[in-house]
Design a protein around this nucleic acid. Structure first.
Length: 108
DNA sequence: ATTTTGACGACGT
DNA sequence: GACGTCGCCAAAA
């Protein structure tokens, strides 16, 4: 790949570093990369992650509200939520409960 | 090549 | 504190 995808590559790397039963936000990743205002790019990277060689747990990445905004991008309609619940995360109406409790900061 | 949109977020009103 | 607008950068139309 090109060297300019450092940003995207970093996103994938961090996404894979998310511990089991934890989630993070696009902005947190972007901030860690030094592009706090480019949170959208993180989301775009996730979309592109589908054609990445490695499996990226994009279901562990949500917006800062703890809302599963991208759940529509997954296969069914509740696959993302099901995966999160499978890890012990409580999700109601596409919204993560105790979000701050399961939040994982990449800087840590 | 230009315009529109998009898995977001911060700031202004 | 709810709602509106702007900023960011990349890809699809």
């Amino acid at each position: 790949m090109k060297d300019t995808d450092n940003f995207f590559d970093k996103v994938y790397e961090i996404a894979r570093l998310i511990p089991f039963g934890r989630v993070t936000s696009y902005g947190a990743i972007a901030s860690y990369l030094g592009a706090a205002k480019s949170a959208r790019m993180v989301g775009w990277a996730m979309n592109n992650s589908h054609h990445q060689p490695t499996s990226v747990p994009a279901h562990r990445v949500v917006n800062r509200k703890g809302l599963l905004t991208g759940k529509h991008h997954f296969e069914g309609t509740n696959l993302m939520q099901q995966l999160l619940e499978s890890e012990g995360i409580v999700v109601v109406e596409n919204q993560i409960q105790d979000f701050e409790r399961v939040f994982w900061n990449p800087i840590e």
